[in-house]
């Protein structure tokens, strides 16, 4: 088994245009708050803030699959769903 990865320190992204051009969105507000407080934040926020017209659907998808109470997933608790997500991310070596 591979060792569990630790979070790398915040570093510049491959695409500066993405990092420097957050569009008006709730994620952009979050980035501003974190930046003005000088705290670290997950850089996936920049991906969400760059292309909200696409990522809003990813957000809706995540909300439904992780927290939605559709006929199927209602029988899998949110805790178990997060555990499945965490296990898959670990297998994909994505520490965040």
């Amino acid at each position: 088994m591979k060792p569990i990865e630790t979070m790398p320190a915040m570093q510049a992204m491959f695409l500066p245009d993405v990092e420097n051009n957050p569009q008006p969105s709730s994620t952009t507000d979050l980035i501003r708050i974190a930046q003005s407080a000088g705290t670290e934040y997950p850089k996936i926020w920049h991906l969400f803030a760059y292309r909200p017209e696409a990522t809003t659907h990813l957000g809706a998808f995540t909300q439904e699959i992780m927290r939605g109470d559709g006929p199927v997933s209602a029988s899998i608790s949110p805790g178990l769903r997060e555990l499945i997500a965490a296990f898959t991310s670990s297998a994909n070596e994505c520490p965040f």
């Binding site: 659907h57 990813l58 809706a60 998808f61 439904e64 939605g68 559709g70």
Partner: peptide
């Protein structure tokens, strides 16, 4: 089978 997840997946495909 699962319209709730179909909708955002289709909308993502439409944008991309």
């Amino acid at each position: 089978f699962r319209p709730e997840t179909a909708t955002p997946m289709s909308e993502l495909a439409e944008v991309l």
